[in-house]
Structures are given as structure tokens and as C-alpha cells.
Amino acid sequence: MRSLTISLVSEFYKSRKTLAFWAAIILPFVICALVAFGFYTSSDKVLKMHYLPIMLWLRYLGAALGVMGVLILPFYVIFMAFSVNNIEHKNDTWKTLFAQPLNKFSIYAAKYLYAVILIFVCLFLFAAFTFVFGHLLQALVPKYNFNQYDPSLVLVKFYAKLFLASLGILSIQFILSLLWGDFLKPMGIGFIGTIMGIITGNVGWKYAYLIPYSHPSLVLNSSTAARKLSDPSDFPIFTQEIYTSLIYALVLFVIGYFIVTKKSIK
């Protein structure tokens, strides 16, 4: 456990000046700010629709969630899984890392866990910024009725589900980035996977849930469906695609450990 904590602190220390780390913070800020800016400048149009508070929130958060879930999340995961491993590939530091008096599994697990934490932070900030900017909009445009509904539960559930749905992709990309030091292979495979995921997820293919790349799309589809409910937060988190994502994550996490102990040392 001590090994794991130490390795995790070191992962943070190493990557705190890298783009992968800052992207987890800047990405949600910029996207939420852009969406809020859109709602601010076109407030006349939005106000004409006379949304109920609950529908106004769903419209607003759906704008961020849509861009985010389908495209940005998978690509952020691909890039971040690459970046966390590339730090060691690029500097040829795998062998030094494994020659430290630390448990080998902890070193690997810390790396994986760090990637998971970055995704978590990124999605948490998405939810937080959505909430904050919503209330900021309310302050700037008093005619909005954001203040008449509390979206916290919907936000938390949407993003929690998206987080769990992204773990399958993360595990695949993590292994690809362990295997190859260059960016093109994991990026290429991830790109194809993501496109495939979007298509299969959206056409509603029966077995789409077996492709991890389709999980965020499937989650988004279910969230679109949730809007039609009288209480939009009343949807289950643990659905088929989430279970699949978690199983993928677990199995690939274990396989990754064997790869890293065999490969890194030559």
C-alpha cells in the first residue's frame, strides 16, 4: 500500500507539467465556458422557447455532454493513456522505475490508477463547471430560470455513468500505449475504435455493448432517453454497457501487468 501511494505521488509529480494533466482541467473549463457563452449570446432565442427550468438545464447540460461524451472523452482518454506511458518510453525510464525498491505491481497499478484519477477529475470538473456556469448565466441573464431547479443529481449521475463507461476504453488504450512507444499506433487504433463505437452505438446494434468504444455513445443515448422521463435523474447507472466496461477494465488491467513486467526491461 505504501508502494502504491508513493508511486502515485511520483506519477503526479512527474506529469504535473505535462499537457495530459492540464488538459484534465482546461478541457472542461473551456468547453463549459464555450457552451455558457453560447447560451449568453443567444439568450433571446433560448428565452423565446419558454423552457421549464428542468428542460432549460437539460438543454444546457446536454450541449456540453453531447460534444464531450461522443468525441472529446474518447480522444482525451486515448491521449492521456498514451501520455502517462510515454513519459517512461520517451525517457527510457521503465527499467529504472522497476529497479526501485518498490513492489512491481504497485508501480504499474499506480500508473493505471493515476490515469483513472485524471479521467475522474476531468469529468468531475465537467459536472462542476456545468453547474457553476449555469448559475453564472442566471446571474448575467436574470430572465433565465436556472435557479428554479437543482440539477446536481442529474449531473452527478450522468457524469458518473460516463466515467464508468470510459474505463473500458482506457484499459485498451493503456495496454496499446504500454506496448508501443509511438503515438500513431494507439491513436490510429483508438480513432478507428471511436468511430466504430459512435456508429454502432447510434444505430443501436444489438451487440454494440461489446465494443468498449461504443460505451460513451450508449450512455449518451440512454441520457437522451432519460430526458423524456418525468424525473430525468431516474435512470439506472449500472446497465449492460457499464458492466461490460468494468469487466473489460478489470481483465485488461491484469493482462497489462504481465505485459509490463515482461516487456519493459530489455
Binding site: 512527474k14 507539467k17 505535462t18 513519459i87 520517451k90 525517457n91 527510457d92 525510464t93 527499467k95 529504472t96 522505475l97 529497479a99
Partner: peptide, 12 residues
């Protein structure tokens, strides 16, 4: 230990 090239993180 110092093995082969020194293992140094270039961005730090």
C-alpha cells in the same frame, strides 16, 4: 544503479 544511458525525465 546507473544502467546504460542515465534514466532522466527530460521535461523535469
Amino acid at each position: 544503479a546507473l544502467v546504460e544511458q542515465p534514466a532522466i525525465y527530460g521535461h523535469l
